[in-house]
């Protein structure tokens, strides 16, 4: 699988705080905020895209570091 970069909250306004991304993240990058998801440990991100592909609300996207 592509490991081209790290996760980014691409569409924060669409987040419904369901926590699915946390469930599917193998390295505990994400945490729940009050109204949206937060990137807590970006350094851990391996760019596996599990969160991007699982998020039902198109909130997360793995992007190249310089994007």
């Amino acid at each position: 699988m592509a490991r081209k970069g790290k996760v980014k909250i691409a569409r924060p306004d669409w987040c419904k705080v369901c926590g699915i991304c946390i469930e599917v993240c193998p390295v505990e990058v994400l945490e729940l905020g009050n109204t949206r998801i937060q990137v807590a440990h970006l350094e851990n991100c391996i760019g596996c895209e599990n969160c991007e592909l699982s998020c039902p609300d198109f909130v997360l996207k793995v992007v190249e570091d310089d994007e």
Partner: peptide
């Protein structure tokens, strides 16, 4: 039309995303 009306945690958005990809 986004964000969609499906409930928080509903899997339909994941299926929709899979379809689009």
């Amino acid at each position: 039309k986004m964000p969609h009306i499906w409930c928080p945690g509903c899997g339909h958005g994941t299926v929709l995303g899979s379809f689009v990809r």
